[in-house]
């Protein structure tokens, strides 16, 4: 039973981050590759505040999420100042920079040994309670996501991807859309990071990073259509499908690599399918 609770908890954390990824990658066309940084940053901030500075746990969580939003605001500002390509590279660089920071400042972060014994809040001390809490949080997130998709902001985000100049001519500020997408995505990644760290109760430099990015990008690309159903199905596919490999007779050392290989194959198949089915290409011929 513990195994299913663990997988479900992982699914819920991935789903939260996947929502942020769907909005930024698929809907807005913003390659927000810094989301894994926000995922790790919120977890580390909470752990450091609570364990090193003895801040009350719920206050640590609130501060961590607030600071994650500030980090998102910083990325949002940078997006308006540099080209899209430069921003993408900068985001990738931020993952490496954060990893280097965590490894170097070991008095704060525990370095390569990390921070162990991270306690969950009193009300969600057990794994089933954590899963129930995560389910509640994700229900709120998905309802909010549905409202955004149906609201004017949802249309503005889709319009921003396609024709940002025409969007301005509609009287919509590009900066408002960019800020909403990047800060919102960062916050969702921060929430996911906290849910995940409460599940494993341990933090080290391998938390988040490139493996997290691969999962996030896979969900975001699979959830191409701006629908709640799309991100739900994408998260199910990305989290549960590789678990089938666990039941096959592979050496455990290979399982992690096989997951990554499976995500890569999924992405290639999807991108090939999308490029072949482009209906507007047919029109232009």
């Amino acid at each position: 039973m513990g195994y299913f609770y663990t997988i479900f908890a992982r699914f819920l954390a991935s789903l939260g981050q996947g929502v942020g990824g769907q909005v930024s990658f698929s809907m807005a066309g913003i390659f927000l590759l810094s989301l894994p940084v926000c995922f790790s940053f919120s977890a580390y901030t909470m752990a450091i505040l609570h364990k090193k500075f003895a801040v009350v746990l719920w206050v640590s969580i609130a501060i961590a999420l607030f600071l994650t939003m500030i980090l998102g605001a910083l990325f949002s500002y940078i997006y308006t100042k540099v080209s899209k390509d430069s921003f993408t590279v900068l985001c990738l660089g931020s993952i490496l920079a954060f990893d280097a920071f965590v490894r170097s400042f070991d008095s704060l972060t525990g370095g390569v040994l990390g921070i162990s014994g991270i306690l969950r809040p009193e009300s969600i001390r057990t794994l089933p309670a954590l899963v129930q809490f995560s389910f509640l949080v994700l229900t709120v997130i998905l309802v909010a996501h549905y409202l955004v998709l149906k609201s004017p902001m949802g249309r503005k985000i889709r319009a921003f991807k396609e024709h940002p100049v025409a969007l301005q001519a509609f009287g919509v500020s590009q900066k408002s859309v960019i800020s909403f997408v990047i800060i919102g995505g960062s916050l969702l990644s921060g929430i996911s990071g906290l849910l995940e760290v409460f599940r494993i109760q341990f933090l080290d430099p391998s938390f988040g990073g490139i493996p997290n990015l691969i999962v996030l990008v896979s969900i975001s690309i699979l959830a191409l259509k701006p629908k709640v159903k799309a991100v739900l199905l994408a998260s199910v596919l990305v989290v549960f499908l590789p678990e089938l490999i666990s039941f096959l007779d592979f050496p455990s050392a290979l399982l992690g690599h096989l997951r990554v290989l499976l995500y890569s194959v999924l992405l290639i198949v999807l991108i090939y399918t999308i490029s072949g089915k482009s209906q507007f290409q047919k029109r232009e011929i």
Binding site: R155, R158, A159, E162, H163, A166, F170, G171
Partner: peptide, 18 residues
């Protein structure tokens, strides 16, 4: 300056909303 990946209805709705 229209949004080709939206329906005609969505394009006009956006204009009315603004």
């Amino acid at each position: 300056g229209v949004f080709k990946e939206m329906t005609l209805e969505e394009n006009i709705i956006m204009a009315i909303e603004q």
